[in-house]
Computed example of a mutant assay.
Amino acid sequence: MAGRRFIVEADGGSRGNPGPAGYGAVVRDGDTGLIIAEAAEFIGHATNNVAEYKGLIAGLRAAREIDPGAEVDVRMDSKLVVEQMSGRWKIKHPDMQPLAAEAKTVLPRGQVRYTWIPRERNKDADRLANEAMDAGKAGKQWEPKAPKAAVPAAEPAAPLETAAPKAGWAAPADLGTPTTFVLLRHGETPLTPEKRFSGSGGGDPELSEKGRWQAERAAEAMAARGTIQAVVSSPMRRTRQTAETVAARLGLDVRIEEGLRELDFGDWEGLTFAEVQERHPADLDAWLASAKAKPTGGSESFTTLAHRVGVARDKILARYAGRTVLVVSHVSPIKTLVRLALGAPPDALYRMELSAAALSAVQYYTDGNASVRLLNDTGHLR
């Protein structure tokens, strides 16, 4: 039976470089993004690089203890360690060579992939490294805190709320082939022309006749494009119908990703904006003013949606690295993916138009950069 997928985030630090040093590492479940193991240690007098390598080794060992057959996506904000362990940079420093060699022996090479991430997206490992150094300063060793229930935070912290928006006009050649998301909003349903709220808490409508026609046109466009290598869809009926139409044309299967479902609009489901404004004016004003506000009777805000979509994005990136993936979803998740790629604030969601069956595209590079290549293209529907 195939092993599980883990995400290892590791970091190390030295107060003085060299100076008192420590490392931290977390292991996340690759499907849920939840932290399932932590490791940290004060290592005495050392450099930042030594501490970072020791953090990597500890994270890999923690993953191996849980499942030695797991596929592991290592994410670190140390460009040096990522590039050296990926084999793109030579390891010249004598202190680094034995540590890199040790890291390579923890798991088979084919099971581990390395990705650079910005420092702000590595806060859990950084926190643990600092806890270890604080413990060392007090003459102690780091000890894990009492385990918490394995549930996502109600309002996620910044690392899951933003993606690195640093891509320039083009990616450097040594970053390799980017992973491309071709984002397709589902075709029309009976609710779409009337601009009614239609989320994951309503009746899960099917495509209308026009929506099915739109899905066929999208399938033709993707067949002509000739680059789609996988199809991933929200679990909702309208997205599955759209995805299945395209996938059948391309000879591909559809993989369902729960994190791509639409926002739950609660009591607003099936209502127009004007009707919500009339019936729930205070809640609507709050929702438009803050990403943390929820629709009346709804279960999640745009902040929690961003967390969910961010986890789904990372799962797809880990599974289809370097490939072009058709991602079939809804207005809110697609706009959120674009917003995160741009590093834009939450209210940017209200400044994007996304038509039924429209195409958008985002490319993700191995150094953590993202680039929006297309937004709301409806040319295939004309």
Rank of each mutant, 00 (worst) to 15 (best):
E9V: 06
G19I: 10
A21Q: 06
G24A: 10
V26C: 03
D29V: 04
D29R: 01
G30F: 03
G33N: 10
A37N: 04
E41S: 14
G55P: 04
L56S: 13
I57N: 05
I57S: 13
A58S: 06
G59E: 08
A63K: 10
I66G: 00
I66D: 01
A70Y: 07
M76L: 08
S78R: 02
V82M: 14
K90Y: 00
I91R: 00
Q97N: 04
E102I: 06
T105C: 09
P108I: 01
R109F: 06
R113W: 00
Y114T: 03
P118C: 11
N122H: 02
N122V: 06
N122R: 12
D126W: 01
L128M: 07
A129C: 03
D134P: 07
P144I: 04
K145N: 03
A146N: 09
K148T: 11
K148N: 07
V151S: 01
A154H: 01
P172K: 14
T177D: 00
P178N: 11
T180W: 07
F181E: 12
V182Y: 14
L183K: 09
T192P: 00
R196N: 01
G199I: 09
D204W: 06
S208K: 13
A218C: 06
A230V: 09
V246N: 09
L250D: 02
I256Q: 13
E257W: 03
L260H: 11
E262K: 07
D264L: 07
F265Y: 13
W268A: 04
E269V: 05
G270I: 11
L271T: 11
L271M: 15
E275W: 04
A282G: 05
G297A: 05
G298S: 13
T303N: 03
A318Y: 12
L326R: 06
V327P: 08
H330K: 08
V338L: 15
D347V: 07
L359W: 00
A361H: 03
A361K: 14
V362H: 01
A370M: 03
L375F: 08
N376V: 04
T378I: 11
G379D: 08
G379L: 00
R382F: 02
